[in-house]
Design a protein around this nucleic acid. Structure first.
Length: 252
DNA sequence: AGCACA
């Protein structure tokens, strides 16, 4: 009853996950219900700092499905692992996520044009599921997975051009930071976004706020969208609140 | 809701 087929699967596949290998930026996720959608995996990780892309994989072993999530750094992968490992993914069945560092990084880089997640379906070609090199080879756009085709990137994102009342600006304003938030922590997150220039933190009578300057408005927008509501490790409150700054940061 | 630096 409580015995899950994937238990056997991942124990056999990853006998001793190496949590210390700093090369690995990819997480291996099992414990997923077999009707999980790639979109759900994406939503699970999309607000984690440093998240790059993910893939859902039908292993071909029964209905078993696993996922891989790739980050821009080992550290951010570990942070997401710690935050999400053991989390109840399906409240009905109570089944919990099992997350480990993957044994090898995903070779797949997110291409500018392509979506943030991909589906790999081995259910029909039931061969070659034991080897370590079967992690892809195809960008198979499965017709059964049509959720992503029209909208590409988002499904629950309201993409107004502006946040609050402010005009788009290449400097971002960060609020809802915890008192323990450091410049380094924020810098580390932001440095993973193209065009990131300078960070300035200000302690506004207790709670810190921050300003992050980007080369281009588009790059600031991208970072804002991806980091909005992200929980920093230092946070003792809700996720990041980000808006366009009211004025561009002064050049020095 | 909280937006500085000059």
């Amino acid at each position: 009853m409580a015995q899950q087929p994937y238990d056997r699967y991942y124990k056999a596949a990853a006998p001793l996950p190496d949590y210390t290998n700093p090369e690995i930026k990819t997480l291996f996720i099992s414990g997923l219900p077999d009707d999980v959608k790639a979109r759900e995996i994406h939503n699970l990780f999309r607000h984690r700092p440093g998240f790059d892309a993910c893939q859902l994989k039908y292993t071909g072993r029964g209905n078993q499905v696993v996922a891989f999530a790739t980050f821009f750094s080992h550290q951010s992968a570990i942070a997401a692992l710690r935050a999400l490992n053991g989390v109840k993914f399906d409240p009905d069945t109570g089944c919990a996520l099992h997350i480990e560092l993957a044994r090898t990084n995903s070779w797949r880089k997110r291409k500018p044009g392509s979506g943030p997640y991909v589906v790999i379906d081995n259910r029909d070609r039931n061969n070659a599921q034991g080897s370590s090199s079967d992690d892809g080879g195809s960008e198979s756009d499965d017709p059964s997975e049509t959720d992503k085709q029209d909208s590409g990137d988002e499904d629950d994102v309201e993409d107004k051009a502006t946040e609050g009342n402010t005009q788009a600006c290449s400097t971002l304003f960060f609020a809802n930071l915890g008192p323990k938030c450091t410049e380094d922590e924020l810098k580390q997150v932001l440095s993973q976004y193209p065009g990131f220039n300078v960070l300035k933190m200000r302690g506004r009578g207790g709670l810190p706020v921050a300003f992050a300057d980007f080369e281009e408005i588009e790059q600031a927008t991208k970072a804002m969208e991806e980091l909005q509501d992200t929980q920093l490790e230092s946070s003792d409150r809700g996720g990041l609140h980000i808006e366009y700054a009211r004025s561009k940061m002064r050049k020095r």
